[in-house]
Design a protein around this nucleic acid. Structure first.
Lengths: 213, 213, 213, 213
DNA sequence: AATGAATGAGGGTTCATTCAT
DNA sequence: TATGAATGAACCCTCATTCAT
């Protein structure tokens, strides 16, 4: 016999959905207003609940931030892994990584935070996040070196180049809105294409001018 | 008639020096910790005075932020003006502007703030700063269009290109330290050279690898 | 007619057992951490259930406290009554009361709370408890007076003496653990013997040195 | 020339007086309502200032509690030291210590807290306070042993006797008011006299009945 | 010019309690 | 009977700002 209860779409599923909504909201507001500039009361109001209700889904405001940072690092390493398998030389791997990463962090369903105040993460959380971020940047520099070796990337300073590219990419979170004329995929393609031209040994003749598939 | 005051001419000078020290300190800490993550007590302690003493030099914490933002915009427009007079085509003007701007905002004596939380500026201040920023970005896009017309810049989407370049440039404030192997001038040259290659119709064969004059 | 319910006679019994377990746990933690220092979440966790489940057995946290206080006063009056029937003079009645009372409040199965923050009981509860406590203390003073009259107790100030003895007795809840070398009975005997010597007209030559039946 | 400023009775003196007033108030309320039952808002209101103002004199609520506990332990060790110099046998030293200690902790100017919820002190503070308390109790037991050796105290269990006496003494904080018929000195004398009779080898014939010098 | 004291507003967090399930 | 979610009030603490000195 089927009871009402068994008909209810799994309870845990609902809970997880609410939790992700919270994380997305938090990421959005953290990115705009900064961690310290965001109050839990703001988040709660946007979500239509009380401050105290948030604690059903998260242990603290700091955990919220940590999860958003972790999501960004997850996006980074997944992109790196996929690109490593698909790209055939250093430049391709590098550029693929950046494109996938950018698509992920500006995705509507994501809850990534990249730009953040020093000292907002707790020391333990910071250790984890900074560690992963440093590793990611190191891997990126390795790809640049690989590209220089295989002739796909011009001679340059890998450290500086990686910083420049990540700056351009992370900055997107500050100004991009998926409601404009470009969607996430188009934006990512065009922006990364621009960066690619800066270091490719075979720079293209022109760049994308308008959103296109 | 000579007054007592005019007999102590250095007084105003000293005051101005202290004020600038405060602004530099504020800019540095705002950039690292964010506006809301910085307390006046922190600033005061770093400067060796009391919170209350700061109010001798500045009307409010918000004014402090406004002045730092204004300094950044001043740097932007000064750079734009100088580059306009020196560059001989769109690309040169654009690239010169960016180089000068970057040198200025990471200069040791500057007190510029670029990356900042939305909602930290008061509405009136925001109107001013955002207005100037939008104008600056518009002028930059105009230079891109000019460059495409005169054949110095490849076909591209000006809005996206300007955002990408400003992202790479502003991000520098987050990671650059003048105590490293690159000084401000070297860093600015190398980073802007990288960006230039992305849009030049005559991309260079190689980029700077190590700091050099 | 037999109902389903009457077929499960242990139901009420089980419920009562759970309730008493809750009271014992509450009394123990209230005594250690204080009423305001104890959260229902703590109690619930210790008992392996949820906060909300506690409300099945008790109307409120305040009722919990009231019941613990009431248990202590019950212990007091039962002791007083029994001692009145057994003792043959004022001193014997007084000392017997104290011994029985002490044995009861430190008993493993009891759920007595004596030491408590002012203002923790609701006004109505406080009226009841304070009323009973005052009555108990008055009866104790009466026994002291009786003892002085019949020559079993030395001349003294009854009010002060009763306070002193109750202080020594109630304090036991703060430090006594039945897991030590003394069991409840032994401890009660020795401690009360000590107090008895302070007011007896025929003080003993020595006191108990070690736990003994 | 005398300025107004130099006429102002030292500023630090005023500050210290306010601070002590705060500590006395805190000790009084902590003793009555318990640590967790006392809110800083209550304290502030009683003192006629804002909650935030309290932080000018104290770093945290926990520090407030720590200072009150420390005062009690200071009273204990000062009493022990003085009594050690004045008493001529174990019993005298023990009884003198208790009397001095009691006088101190109920003194109008003191800010002692003795009875307190477990877990109210921070772990670091607890270590300090518990360490000192244990040392004090050990010294007291040593005096009992000394008294038994020199024949001034009857044979007994030192640990139990010390607990009993400290219970009677500490309990006084719960009920004594200096506004009654007994003042601090009289109360301390009478109560300790009662306890002395319990362990003296030469118990007195009678005890104090009424307050007297 | 600079300070210490004080304030009022707000922030993150906890908690006793309720309620639908 | 027992739970997870939600609430509103309270709590400790911080902070930008003011003011008398």
């Amino acid at each position: 016999m089927l009871t009402w209860k068994s008909a209810v779409p799994d309870n845990n599923e609902q809970r997880e959905k609410k939790r992700e909504t919270l994380l997305r909201e938090a990421a959005a507001v953290f990115t705009r207003r900064g961690f310290h500039g965001t109050s839990l009361a703001d988040l709660a109001e946007n979500l239509g609940v009380t401050k105290a209700a948030l604690y059903t889904y998260v242990q603290s405001k700091h955990e919220l931030l940590f999860l958003c940072h972790s999501a960004a690092m997850d996006a980074a390493f997944e992109s790196l892994k996929e690109a490593g398998a698909q790209g055939s030389n250093g430049r391709e791997k590098l550029i693929l990584t950046l494109r996938k990463y950018l698509e992920r962090i500006i995705g509507k369903q994501s809850f990534c935070v990249v730009i953040m105040e020093e000292g907002a993460l707790t020391p333990e959380h910071a250790e984890t996040i900074i560690g992963r971020r440093d590793l990611f940047e190191r891997e990126m520099r390795t790809l640049v070196v690989e590209g220089i070796s295989d002739g796909s990337i011009v001679r340059c300073n890998p450290r500086l180049v990686v910083f420049a590219m990540l700056g351009a990419v992370n900055w997107v979170l500050k100004w991009f809105s998926p409601d404009g004329v470009w969607n996430e995929r188009q934006l990512a393609f065009a922006l990364i294409q621009f960066l690619e031209r800066a270091l490719s040994t075979q720079p293209s003749e022109a760049l994308v001018e308008d959103p296109a598939l």
